[in-house]
Simulated scan of single mutants.
Amino acid sequence: MSFERKLNESLKWKKILQITTERPDNRNYDGIVVCIAKEFIILAQEIDYVFDGFVLIPRSKIAYFEEREEQEFSYQLLLDSGAIQQLSPPDWIGDCRTYRDVFDHILKQHPWMTVNWVCPRCDDIHVDTALLKDSDNHSLSVELYNRAGHSLGEAGWVVSKIFSMEFESGYTNKFGYFVDKRRVGESKKS
């Protein structure tokens, strides 16, 4: 079955697919398609039988997709628990057609994300938590943070180097909320 047909079936019937990104990232993402755009797709990410945020995957970084027995089991379990029926992504996600559409909404809503990207200097894959500062349709300006919540400074990413971008997940929401809260507390002390 064609990739486009599978994407549309996932979107229409809320079927779980597994999308694998190409090397060097080579990660699997399970979820339900909530947006199909010319340059990317967005999944409602399923991890351990729970929907946890969204992941944007550029089409150019998709190596392959699968709908195996494990995804069907996840679908049946989530259907039985009511999670499929309760899945209700924000309306704006389905309306996005460009990277800029996505970035503008993330910037307005909750500008924290986790991004898998390839460093142009070393060609290694990096996974960073970032605060989105600005964007256009081809690049992002972000402030990077380590896992201890300390800023590593600002950076710029070209969209073509991004393999995936997770947003509105439990991790990014908690991390961002706490770092924002701590930053406000520190600015009051000054």
Rank of each mutant, 00 (worst) to 15 (best):
F3W: 11
S10D: 04
L11W: 11
L11F: 08
K12N: 13
W13P: 02
W13V: 08
K14Y: 05
K15W: 02
I16D: 00
E22V: 13
P24R: 04
R27M: 12
Y29A: 07
G31M: 04
V34T: 01
V34P: 01
C35Q: 11
A37I: 11
A37H: 07
F40W: 04
I41F: 02
I42D: 00
L43M: 04
E46C: 04
I47P: 05
D48S: 10
D48A: 08
Y49S: 14
F51W: 04
G53C: 03
G53Q: 01
I57A: 01
I57Y: 05
I57F: 03
P58G: 13
K61H: 14
Y64S: 15
E66L: 15
E66K: 11
R68T: 15
R68W: 01
Q71L: 09
F73V: 15
S74K: 15
S74M: 10
L77G: 08
L78Y: 08
D80W: 12
D80C: 06
G82N: 13
Q85E: 15
Q85P: 09
L87S: 07
P89K: 01
P89Y: 05
W92I: 14
C96P: 05
R97A: 14
R100V: 09
D101S: 13
H105K: 11
I106V: 10
I106C: 05
I106P: 01
L107Q: 09
K108C: 11
Q109V: 12
H110G: 07
N116A: 14
V118M: 14
R121E: 14
C122A: 01
D123N: 15
D124H: 03
V127G: 12
A130D: 08
L131Q: 10
L132I: 03
D136K: 09
D136L: 06
L140R: 02
L140I: 00
S141Y: 04
V142N: 05
E143V: 00
E143T: 07
R147I: 09
S151E: 10
S151G: 09
G153R: 05
E154D: 13
G156S: 08
W157D: 00
V159K: 00
V159D: 11
S160F: 09
F163Y: 15
S164F: 05
M165V: 07
F167G: 04
F167W: 02
E168C: 05
S169T: 15
Y171Q: 09
N173L: 15
N173E: 10
K174P: 08
K174N: 14
G176C: 05
Y177M: 03
V179P: 03
R182M: 14
R182H: 09
G185R: 00
G185M: 10
E186T: 09
S187P: 03
K188I: 13
K189N: 06
